[in-house]
């Protein structure tokens, strides 16, 4: 059906008209969010898209948008999509950008083909609608990917914020762990703690797990690895806040906590650390 399509020609000949019609269509769709995206930007994006599409359509391939001649169009859509994702547009609002071009294009095709060739017109409409559907789906795909990246980044930031390393005394660090410990978070905690040990030349780090609801095998192993790594660097760790259930779990899990110093309370751990450094509290 794509054979001999007049899309490229129409895009070229009626560029200015199509742009105005399309912008009107977009405004009418109620998906514009003028508070997020200015009229000038929208106009620039729309013009750029029409240009890119015209260039790509000249090649005659209107069915496969994964080919090199559609690269500019794809890149442009990807850019627009990820900008909108970070601005807070919904996926539907983002896809409407492409979808709303259907109406102006169909109208223009209808006028051009003059009604005498109904079969030809239907063919053109089918070609254009399939093409725009593909481009629309592509924006959604990119949109979701961008969202996932944003979420992943926020997740990382949150982890950083939720695990402060505090210097409680010269030579003594403490990390109060609060909430569920997953693998990613424990890794970040471990890295931050070890780096702080180097930065402050601290001999002892207290890892307080009072705020950790449960300790499973994986978390127990992460704690063990942290202690082992700290020792390789020349520092020692004390684990505090070990509640009865956690002590039971650790022993039942068979985790090798032998040789690791644990205390029921943070105060107990601090007293032990001070004693290690030869300090006493009067």
């Amino acid at each position: 059906m794509a054979k001999g399509s007049r899309l490229a020609e129409i895009l070229r000949n009626y560029e200015a008209d199509l742009l105005e019609d399309w912008l009107r269509e977009q405004r009418a769709s109620g998906t514009l969010r003028p508070e997020l995206l200015s009229e000038t930007e929208l106009r620039a994006q729309s013009r750029e898209f029409l240009n890119a599409m015209q260039q790509a359509a000249q090649g005659g391939n209107l069915t496969d948008i994964t080919t090199p001649e559609w690269k500019n169009t794809r890149d442009l859509l990807a850019r627009i999509s990820s900008i909108r994702a970070s601005l807070g547009f919904s996926p539907a609002e983002t896809a409407t950008f492409v979808m709303s071009l259907k109406q102006p294009l169909f109208t223009r095709l209808g006028k051009e083909m003059d009604g005498q060739n109904l079969e030809g017109l239907l063919g053109e409409i089918w070609t254009v609608t399939t093409l725009l559907d593909k481009l629309g789906l592509y924006t959604t795909e990119v949109f979701i990917e961008s969202r996932e990246q944003i979420i992943a980044r926020q997740h990382e930031d949150l982890i950083e914020l939720s695990t402060p390393v505090i210097q409680v005394w010269k030579g003594i660090l403490a990390v109060p762990l609060v909430g569920t410990l997953d693998s990613a978070r424990t890794q970040v905690v471990m890295e931050n703690l070890l780096q702080e040990i180097v930065n402050t030349a601290s001999d002892i780090a207290i890892i307080d797990i009072t705020g950790v609801p449960t300790v499973d095998t994986l978390v127990a192993q992460h704690l063990l690895k942290t202690v082992a790594a700290a020792r390789l660097m020349g520092a020692d760790c004390i684990i505090s806040g070990v509640r009865p259930q956690i002590a039971q779990t650790i022993v039942q899990l068979g985790a090798e906590f032998t040789g690791i110093r644990t205390k029921a309370t943070l105060a107990g751990a601090l007293a032990l650390a001070l004693r290690d450094l030869g300090l006493t509290i009067q």
């Binding site: 471990m190 070890l194 180097v198 690895k225 790594a229 700290a230 390789l232 660097m233 020349g234």
Partner: peptide, 17 residues
């Protein structure tokens, strides 16, 4: 002396002490 944190983590993961 002076083992870097990333090196220490890697050695522990390798299973070396």
């Amino acid at each position: 002396v002076g083992m870097q944190p990333a090196v220490a983590i890697t050695l522990v993961e390798l299973g070396l002490s």
